[in-house]
Design a protein around this nucleic acid. Structure first.
Lengths: 185, 185
DNA sequence: GTCTATATTATGATAGAC
DNA sequence: GTCTATCATAATATAGAC
């Protein structure tokens, strides 16, 4: 838990990386081992199976999400603005691991599917006190999903969000989300 | 083109169905042939390769999208409302084929990736005359992506949109989308 | 048009040396 | 902890009978 072996992290990085750049299907044991610069045997010492690799990636995601949620509720611009903005931060560690787990989920991995549904529940419950209506909260989550989805879908080409600040203003205004007025609904 | 052989369509249906119910990874030639009730050889008479299957599914999608766009711009509730609403129509033919192609795309199929990006461009260009600002248009597309994404992600469990009409009202109001005021932006 | 083999390669996983 | 075989299975695709 505290300071895992270097090679193990390297393999996990490689797993994530191959999923992101070439798709889940390319992320075979062979390919991941090669990317990490270890032999297949070496990989299998740290992760005894494909499922073990997935579990480790999910753990990494949940760890990073917990940190992100903490920062989000403390953001001076308000949690909703922070949430929308970080949804679009392509390429940071959190976004990468969520996209990777999302790919595993949409490929039929039950563990990853459950992890993504839990993630959405965490987002919902964390933002709930800051959005006055349930519909508004759903709109916010859907926009975030949409942003994420556009990152996740294309391998290579990603449509840009032209004016993120204007989008945030539109969403927060439409939903009545402001700093911390506790919800009525 | 006009009235393709029955077995061919049956195989294509099976391909789509397996992708949707068990994930892209499960949609092997063997599995698809079995689902369609033909032998592997029979399948390969109609579709000489895996890529040929994908191409045929993409064609089907593009055909259905063209029909849908036509209906959308003629919808009495306005194209934007029609667009958001049909995004959530889980299980109809259009939604099924888009989800299936989306799964192929997120698995690294270059053809499907391109097809999905084209699809988004078609949506963008078709809705553009009905939304006064580009940011508003992006919000609408993101919400639709979010709805679609939630359909696509989970194999089995899908979070429900609690109040679709309220969501549509919120989105159309926020974006200034109404019947046909041509865009200024 | 549809079938039954079968070839070829790739995949996840094991065994055991170093 | 990391490596080199090696195995069993499953994948795409081919060949050729019916």
């Amino acid at each position: 838990m505290s300071r895992p072996p270097l090679a193990r992290e390297k393999v996990l990085d490689a797993f994530e990386d191959v999923i992101l750049t070439e798709g889940e299907r390319a992320a075979t044991m062979d390919r991941v081992a090669a990317q990490a610069g270890v032999s297949k045997g070496g990989l299998l010492y740290h992760f005894a199976s494909k499922v073990a690799l997935e579990e480790a990636l999910i753990e990494r995601m949940e760890r990073l999400v917990a940190v992100d949620m903490k920062e989000m509720v403390e953001d001076p611009a308000g949690p909703v603005a922070a949430f929308i903005r970080t949804s679009a931060q392509t390429g940071d560690e959190l976004d990468r691991v969520i996209t990777a787990v999302g790919r595993l989920a949409s490929n039929g991995s039950p563990l990853s599917g459950e992890a993504i549904r839990n993630l959405r529940a965490v987002w919902h419950d964390t933002l709930q006190p800051f959005v006055p209506t349930e519909v508004g909260l759903q709109l916010i989550l859907l926009v975030s999903d949409g942003v994420y989805f556009n990152n996740a879908l294309a391998i290579g080409a990603v449509p840009e969000i032209a004016d993120m600040e204007a989008l945030i203003t539109m969403v927060t205004t439409a939903t009545g989300a402001e700093l911390p007025p506790p919800r009525i609904d």
